[in-house]
Write a protein that binds this DNA or RNA. Structure first.
Lengths: 153, 153
DNA sequence: TCCAAATGATACCATAATTGTATCATTTGT
DNA sequence: ACAAATGATACAATTATGGTATCATTTGGA
């Protein structure tokens, strides 16, 4: 009679140890903070130094983030002395999902499933349908969250 | 009169270019494939070589994945000639979420929000609540998908 | 008994993503 | 003219991802 090999005690086999799936990366997070700040002070033009002070985000990183938001048309930018950034769109019309897309790319639950027509794996189409439905719903919900909402606390 | 700086044309500022958020990583995907195969042949013990042939997954990587599934108590392992792996639990009781947790760690939409009590950022509690609700729902849905489901196609 | 075939444990490694820094050019208000 | 701001872009450190490789151990069977 054959018996299964014993299960080891708390031995960590690595292969993803400390990781934890995070849907929102740091740059998205910073971007949201900055956008909220700008949304709360729409009357003024806000400079990077001010944002750095208020939000405690590393300066060069924040600059890059703001530049990208500007290039994407989400912010207006004013160069020169007294310059800075301001919202280019109403905060209520900027959803979290858009910000996520700027910094994290398109959403796709599992790349593997999308390569090759309908995937050579038998199981995948079933999984794909279900997963896509979940994704669709989550996107819809995240889409409802706007900078406007968040800025109002 | 001051006017906003112009928006550049299709200039890519890097800071996440080709990335696309994927919720299911390759090892989870491989694990699911392997589990489905095992689920479909519960009567037998399946060896790595057989799985490699059937699923076209790189051998050493698959071995590591199976070992981890074994250590987590999801698979039974038989050493020695004629050995291999088999399900330790009913496929219907292994949900996708568990497999994801094994390979991708705990789910957490945004780490930043969880560090420091309730976060020094004003906006975050609002965001956190909404995001957590979305997360909760998605987890619930993913939890409903089991290896049993998937193996049945 | 010995060997081949299997897993167990673990160390290593290449590439890409993440999270930044640093620098120089340009614009603009005073 | 100068200082203060953004624009563009190159570089860099750390971690995650997706693997390889190696040696030890177990086990069935000739």
């Amino acid at each position: 009679m054959r018996h299964p090999a014993q299960i080891g005690v708390a031995r960590v086999l690595s292969l993803r140890t400390r990781g934890s799936m995070k849907l929102i990366t740091r740059d998205t997070d910073y971007a949201v903070r900055a956008l909220c700040y700008l949304a709360k002070h729409r009357e003024r033009t806000i400079s990077v130094p001010e944002l750095v002070k208020a939000l405690e985000i590393p300066r060069p990183f924040l600059r890059k983030i703001l530049q990208l938001l500007h290039n994407k048309g989400i912010l207006k930018a004013y160069k020169g002395k007294g310059g800075g950034f301001s919202m280019a769109i109403s905060p209520g019309r900027i959803s979290l999902i858009e910000v996520m897309r700027v910094f994290q790319g398109q959403f796709s639950l599992n790349e593997c499933l999308f390569k090759k027509e309908c995937c050579p794996r038998r199981y995948s189409c079933g999984l794909r349908k279900k997963i896509m439905e979940i994704e669709r719903q989550a996107l819809k919900d995240i889409g409802k969250i706007t900078i406007g909402n968040l800025a109002r606390d």
